[in-house]
């Protein structure tokens, strides 16, 4: 179980003291991911979702808030002591090309962390070799083919599978997949998503999926939780299927409306929400953060800041003064 309370992160842009600009990447985000559970962070680039994922994986520090891993608050530990905790959370990079060392074969890449574990637990060399093959088979690769090869000799999809196999060498509790399929060929993406889903079901690894594409989030698991993040704040949260079918926050609705409709197969939703253009809203912090782009804003939105809370009679939470269900998602065309 991994939880976070009030995670805050501000980036100070480097440069002269006078020109230093602050960017609020995260503004007090709460989350909880159960053991073996699935969650997705959805948002545009710059929403802070990637930063949050990196903080969870222990690759970035945060300014305020608490991360608790299996009941242990991380702030109570010294950096060295945190390492074994964060090792249970492995990040799968967006770009499988840079995530693998081009000068090392898959064999070398997998053996390094396995050797370390073998040394720590007194296991033998043959365990290392066997485990490497086992893991490659687990991610759907042929060890005989893949092991002696360098990353450039593999396709994008295979590389991402190797990256996943490498993450599995430390028996992680959670995989954080940051746009893990966006650089992979379209016809192979679903294979990677299915693999993550499968690992979750078979190994009980929880999966945190970070993406701007809501549709891919659906494939990690129907019981998954969806966090819609806008400018460092969670604006809507709930079950994947609920949020897709009944979004109430205008930002969530904008995201869903923006997903291309496969005309011929589907027809557009009835009330698509198109946000107004985002113009230097970076510095605008008063009231609802989305107000300036929201087509439904009122005076209250400009002055008051909405907090995440339960909508009446639903399981989902939202941060909007004027929640309303709109059918924005495409529907199957009336064929057949």
């Amino acid at each position: 179980m991994i939880t976070g309370q009030g995670i805050t992160k501000t980036f100070r842009q480097r440069g002269s003291v006078l020109a230093g600009r602050e960017v609020k990447a995260l503004r007090g985000v709460d989350f909880a991911i159960k053991k073996g559970g699935a969650a997705s962070f959805i948002g545009e680039s710059g929403s802070g979702k990637t930063t949050l994922g990196r903080i969870i994986a222990g690759l970035e520090s945060h300014d305020a808030g608490e991360i608790t891993i299996d009941g242990t608050p991380m702030s109570s530990l010294r950096p060295k002591q945190r390492q074994p905790y964060f090792r249970r959370i492995q990040l799968i990079h967006q770009d499988p090309y840079s995530a693998l060392n081009p000068t090392r074969t898959v064999h070398q890449t997998l053996n390094a962390p396995l050797d370390l574990r073998a040394k720590g637990t007194g296991r033998s060399r043959s365990w290392v070799e066997g485990r490497a093959e086992e893991l490659l088979e687990l991610v759907g690769l042929d060890p005989g083919y893949v092991l002696p090869r360098y990353p450039h000799q593999l396709s994008g999809g295979m590389r991402q599978r190797v990256v996943i196999a490498r993450a599995l060498t430390v028996d992680p509790e959670m995989l954080v997949a940051d746009e893990a399929v966006s650089m992979i060929d379209v016809s192979l993406r679903l294979g990677i998503l299915a693999l993550l889903k499968d690992l979750r079901e078979r190994l009980g690894v929880s999966v945190l999926f970070i993406t701007h594409d809501v549709a891919t989030a659906r494939y990690i698991g129907e019981d998954g939780e969806l966090y819609v993040i806008y400018r460092g704040q969670v604006v809507e949260r709930g079950h994947v299927e609920t949020i897709i079918s009944d979004p109430v926050h205008p930002y969530t609705q904008s995201l869903l409306s923006a997903i291309p409709v496969l005309r011929g197969l589907e027809q557009p939703g009835e009330e698509p929400v198109v946000p107004t253009e985002a113009l230097d809203e970076g510095n605008h912090d008063a009231g609802c953060l989305f107000a300036r782009r929201c087509p439904f804003r009122t005076g209250r939105c400009e002055s008051e800041h909405p907090v995440l809370g339960h909508a009446e009679g639903t399981s989902q939470e939202h941060a909007c003064f004027h929640p309303r269900r709109r059918s924005v998602v495409a529907m199957p065309a009336g064929r057949a």
Partner: peptide
């Protein structure tokens, strides 16, 4: 077994074990 992926079989894909480093 797991993901339904077909990986092209390697003609002569050498298994890397003991002599891997020498190879």
């Amino acid at each position: 077994m797991t993901a339904p992926t077909i990986i092209p079989g390697a003609p002569g894909g050498t298994r890397t074990t003991g002599g891997a480093r020498a190879t």
